[in-house]
Structure formats: C-alpha cells, structure tokens
Amino acid sequence: MDKVLRLASEQGVVIFIKSTCCLCYAVKILFQEIGVDPLVHEIDQDPEGREMEKALTRMGCSAPVPAVFVGGKLLGSTNEVMSLHLSGSLNQMLKPYQSQT
C-alpha cells in the first residue's frame, strides 16, 4: 500500500490502469479531453502489480482499475469518475490541474 500512496502523490492527477482495460482507456481519454495530463501507472506492467491491485481494493476502489487519485487522495474508479463528470463536478475539481493552453 505504501508504494501506491507514494506513486499517487507524485503528481496532481494519477491514474492506475491495466493496459488491456477498455474502461481504463476511456477514463484516461476523458481526463485528456478535459485538459488534464494524468500520470498513468500500468500496474500490469509492474512486478508488484498484484500487490498494488490488492492495495487499491483495500483502499476502497469498487474496481481495482482504473483507480483515480487527485491531489494524492483516492477519487475512485469508473463509476465515481463518470458520476462526477456527468454532474459537472469533475471539471471544477480538475481546474487546478488543467494545462493552460
């Protein structure tokens, strides 16, 4: 769990994904369309990936991936992210992390 928390704090927006997960891809693209360039960790490419997946589940992720962290705090998985996006709250939450282009 320490590794997950350390990685989750490396940047403002961090997403843990699996390279073969279509929901992970959709969440990553959503953030990019909002103007946020998240730091992405592919846990299936990490030797400690299984332990990281278990840690994400213990932290409260309904599904272990995608797991989205904003400001070092767990935002959630696909359901939480999409609910926030549909309500308009996600854009507000991500304003500090949007690129100024």
Rank of each mutant, 00 (worst) to 15 (best):
Asn91Phe: 12
Val68Ile: 04
Ile29Gln: 10
Lys95Pro: 09
Pro96Val: 03
Gly76Val: 02
Leu74Gln: 06
Thr20Arg: 04
Asn79Val: 10
Glu48Ala: 07
Met52Thr: 06
Val40Gly: 02
Leu56Arg: 03
Pro47Trp: 04
Pro64Lys: 04
Pro96Ile: 01
Leu74Asn: 06
Lys54Trp: 10
Gly76Tyr: 02
Ser19Pro: 05
His85Thr: 05
Asp2Gln: 14
His41Gln: 08
Ser89Glu: 14
Gln11Thr: 10
Asp46His: 07
Ala63Gly: 15
Lys73Asn: 08
Arg50Asp: 14
Gln45Gly: 13
Leu7Pro: 15
Glu10Ala: 08
Gly72Asp: 01
Ser77Met: 05
Asp2Arg: 08
Tyr97Pro: 12
Leu75Thr: 07
Gly60Leu: 01
Val36Asp: 00
Cys24Ala: 10
Ser62Phe: 11
Phe16Gly: 01
Ala55Gln: 04
Val27Phe: 03
Met82Val: 15
Gly71Val: 01
Ser9Phe: 03
Ser62His: 12
Val13Gln: 03
Gly12His: 01
Met93Tyr: 07
Gln32Tyr: 09
Ser83Trp: 08
Ser19Trp: 00
Leu90Cys: 04
Gly88Asp: 11
Glu42Pro: 05
Leu30Trp: 03
Leu39Met: 12
Met93Arg: 07
Asp44Glu: 07
Gly72Pro: 08
Pro47Asp: 10
Leu39Cys: 10
Thr20His: 07
Met93Gln: 07
Gln32Met: 14
Pro64Val: 03
Ile29Leu: 15
Ser77Ala: 06
Phe16Asp: 01
Ser9Thr: 07
Gln45Pro: 13
Ser9Gln: 09
Ser89Gly: 14
Gln32Arg: 15
Ser19Ile: 06
Asn79Thr: 13
Arg6Tyr: 15
Val14Asn: 03
Gly60Ala: 02
Val70Tyr: 00
Phe69Ile: 02
Met52Asp: 05
Phe31His: 07
Leu86Val: 12
Ile29Ser: 10
Gly49Arg: 00
Ala63Asn: 14
Ser19Tyr: 04
Ile15Asp: 02
Thr101Trp: 11
Thr20Pro: 07
Val27Gln: 00
Ser62Glu: 15
Arg50Val: 15
Thr101Ala: 13
Lys28Arg: 13
Asn79Met: 15
Val27Asn: 04
Gln45Trp: 12
Glu33Cys: 12
Thr78Leu: 05
Val36His: 05
Ser62Met: 14
Leu86His: 15
Glu48Asp: 14
Arg6Gln: 15
Leu86Gly: 10
Ser99Asn: 12
Ala67Phe: 04
Ile15Cys: 02
Glu48Phe: 06
Tyr25Cys: 12
Val13Tyr: 02
